[in-house]
Write a protein that binds this DNA or RNA. Structure first.
Lengths: 341, 341
DNA sequence: ATGAAAGCGCTAACAT
DNA sequence: ATGTTAGCGCTTTCAT
């Protein structure tokens, strides 16, 4: 097995250029006070040896400058919503010369803790976090030591930090109100795990809308804990077999909307409004009405808040709430059995 | 502005536990040769101070162990295809106790170089790379110094490293052959930048299929350089205005397929087969026929190859080609003006 | 079983 | 303008 060539260090460059390591340091870091001729010699040695500064060693010594690394911890990086958020965070980081460590929690507190521990052990300057429902006591010490934390998409239970979310409750209420406005009263709620903050909020919006119209919540029409596209489809099936089945559906995230579409019955369609837009929503028959949120804005805002904290802003934690948009296409108006108001 | 509390170091723990830093190091790193009673005292001090080991300092000293960090450099993390790949890479990394730095290149060689430089400066043990079309000379020195590199999705020009791709050319050929089999001879090609390897390959597959059927390539029907959903839609418009317009479309990636669907004319539909599956492909009217590739398998395979290299495998670079699947639904058979064979 | 000394690669602080 | 010394937080090596 071929031995890897040792990485050249400043000492090596210094020897090759006939100067001291300190001079190399100055040149490599673009600091003033080096004669142009000396700098040229150093730069030549750098090129000749293919030298690149070891930033880990650098950051170890420079205590006040940080590591120019942030961590991004999301529920699931494969989810297009979080992927868009991640890209947006990455762009903001790149602009500022930062790099981004990413990790997915799968909404498991244990994995969240592992991922965050691995990040803080590497001295990240900040963390953008889609928190799980678990405790976050392990963040206390890193935060006291200066690691900045921003929550995004959901607040962290017991975490007094900046938080960027959308108006989940109002968005859901608007969607369900739309359905009510079209004469539906048997409206099913299909949601992910209820212990996920956004889901609880959206369910509250569902209840709000029904209450405002004097429609009681029928627990038979409520399904929580739908984690997959398949399980959502299955839930629709069971809903159909009810003695008094729903005429309309409110689906509480993109995955569930997809599942509902899979299970859709063209001969007896249900009205449908979903949370989260989908790339082909307008090409469906009928075009899909949705509550749309902007992951790029969420990620970008969270990143900006984080970098302002890293930059020294130590005012009281803020809570930023971005607005959802309600995109009326057609699926909320249809439904074979929708009473003709 | 509140002064951040200094992070406790091993020295602090050592003092609190009444031992030497070396003993703390042994306990924290789970090394043998510490009396249980001593270890207990150290662990208590660790908890009391909220001590966490600084892994950057650790890795600086332990030259043979690496940093347990890999870098993932993709074209665009927001693209669901690369997002899925990223998640898959992250899972493999997490299983092994590694963390992942991510970066998007936007297919710009300059940004690719910046991102990779930032990663290697942080001493990543390996790099999974969706290379741009630029040169990669800057990788030579890090690779000589032991940084492992694996290319995924595309080979890197002049990079003699492990590469994981799919059979783009055969997949495209199959798709176009399908169209030809349904009587189409005026088949348009809509692709992204031709200097992207996958796009060139898919275009070759398009030509192969036509050639095998004795159909000449009509340059009027070929559109390269479609970077956005919108531009793809616009291209369809210009295609329709041709004196002898196409009856069928082959779209060379998901974004372009989406654009083609946006521009679809229900009164005069064109047959359509696309590269890359879409979440709602089967719910469209007509259901969309596609060449499907598996980003999770791509990412997982690339990660496995990388970790086997990091683990010491120094055999000659391999080239792994995964197979695409051709999912026949219906959009390749329809088309108002498809000659009735 | 425990500790002291040295040094990983770099830079702050202080010479010269 | 350049160099020397010390030390960031940790672990290797070699005592004891």
């Amino acid at each position: 097995m071929r031995r890897p060539v040792k990485r050249p260090t400043m000492k090596d460059v210094a020897r090759a250029a006939g100067v001291s390591p300190m001079t190399v340091s100055r040149v490599v870091s673009g600091e003033p006070g080096v004669a142009p001729s000396t700098a040229a010699r150093v730069e030549q040695a750098v090129r000749k040896l293919g030298y690149q500064r070891n930033d880990n060693a650098r950051h170890l010594r420079q205590k006040n400058l940080g590591t120019s690394t942030i961590g991004l911890v999301v529920d699931d990086l494969a989810n297009p919503f979080y992927a868009l958020m991640a890209r947006s965070v990455e762009d903001e980081a790149h602009r500022r010369g930062y790099v981004v460590l990413v990790g997915s929690t799968n909404d498991e507190p244990r994995r969240e803790r592992e991922v965050i521990a691995a990040f803080t052990a590497r001295q990240v300057d900040g963390l953008i976090l889609v928190p799980t429902n678990g405790g976050h006591g392990f963040l206390k010490q890193p935060m006291a030591a200066g690691t900045r934390v921003v929550c995004v998409d959901r607040p962290g239970k017991g975490l007094d930090v900046d938080t960027v979310t959308v108006d989940n409750r109002a968005g859901a209420q608007r969607a369900v109100t739309h359905l009510l406005g079209h004469g539906h009263t048997r409206i099913a709620y299909l949601g992910d795990r209820f212990d996920i903050w956004t889901q609880a909020e959206r369910f509250s919006g569902y209840r709000d809308a029904l209450a405002a119209h004097g429609v009681p919540v029928d627990e038979d029409l409520v399904r929580h804990g739908l984690r997959t596209r398949e399980s959502a489809g299955a839930a629709i099936g069971s809903l159909r077999e009810l003695p008094d089945p729903p005429t309309a559906l409110f689906t509480s995230n993109d995955l569930i909307t997809l599942g509902a579409l899979d299970a859709a019955d063209r001969t007896a369609p249900l009205a449908l409004v979903g949370f989260d837009d989908l790339p082909l929503a307008e090409r469906l028959d009928p075009p899909l009405t949705v509550v749309s949120q902007d992951p790029v804005a969420l990620g970008g805002t969270a990143a900006n808040v984080l970098f302002s904290r890293i930059g020294g802003d130590s005012s009281a934690p803020r809570s930023v709430v971005l607005l959802t948009r309600f995109l009326v296409r057609a699926s909320g108006e249809s439904g074979a059995r929708a009473p003709g108001r």
